[in-house]
């Protein structure tokens, strides 16, 4: 019995027809294109925060929680880049003085002031910031090299990326580099 005869009898064809083969190939190609586009559109999670009116960012994967400001207990003799310690639900965390590290004059704490708990290089610590603006996903393609005019003391901690948020530059900082500078 020929294939034509089989179809006339209402039976399913034994092999795929040419049209089906073409459609399969087209679907496969489209899937590949979608996967490729998705790879191109890989995003990074950023915690955008404020220091002295400027926007900065930490990679979201390095940020464990964002706490409202609370008074920091100064520990005599601790490195100048640390403000002291706080009690976070029974755990003692240090608090980094990022203003000092980046040569920014610290202001008085306000209702917007936050302590960001970060973890990198096996070290966990709080970092005092003037406010947390947003937590967002940014396409990796939108992260550009930092401005050549970026201050040297800030560049020291920059990951090597900058992006735009509300038409302002966000300099992405490396938590690991910040902690390393204090340890060494």
């Amino acid at each position: 019995m020929t294939e034509e005869q089989t179809r006339e009898n209402g039976d399913a064809p034994r092999g795929k027809e040419k049209s089906e083969q073409i459609l399969d190939a087209v679907k496969e190609r489209r899937n590949r294109q979608r996967e490729s586009a998705a790879a191109e559109e890989k995003t990074v999670n950023l915690v955008v925060f404020i220091l002295d009116g400027d926007f900065y960012g930490f990679y979201g994967e390095e940020i464990k929680e964002i706490l409202p400001y609370e008074p920091v207990t100064f520990v005599p003799g601790c490195p100048d880049d640390l403000l002291g310690i706080i009690n976070v639900r029974g755990d003692i965390e240090s608090v980094v003085n990022l203003h000092r590290m980046m040569g920014i004059s610290p202001g008085e704490p306000t209702r917007d002031t936050r302590i960001v708990i970060a973890s990198a290089e096996g070290i966990r610590s709080g970092i005092l910031v003037d406010g947390v603006e947003d937590v967002l996903d940014v396409p990796q393609s939108e992260i550009k090299r930092p401005l050549a005019t970026l201050d040297r003391s800030i560049r020291e901690f920059a990951v090597g990326g900058e992006t735009l948020y509300n038409e302002k530059y966000v300099t992405i900082l490396d938590v690991g580099k910040i902690f390393s500078k204090i340890v060494h």
């Binding site: 207990t73 520990v75 005599p76 003799g77 601790c78 490195p79 640390l82 310690i85 755990d91 003692i92 965390e93 240090s94 980094v96 096996g122 070290i123 966990r124 610590s125 902690f179 204090i182 340890v183």
Partner: peptide, 19 residues
């Protein structure tokens, strides 16, 4: 509690040893 890791170096020389 022990002092946090970023203060470990301090712990070796400081009279403050914990909290």
């Amino acid at each position: 509690r022990p002092l946090p890791k970023l203060m470990e170096q301090l712990c070796r020389i400081s009279p403050v040893w914990g909290a």
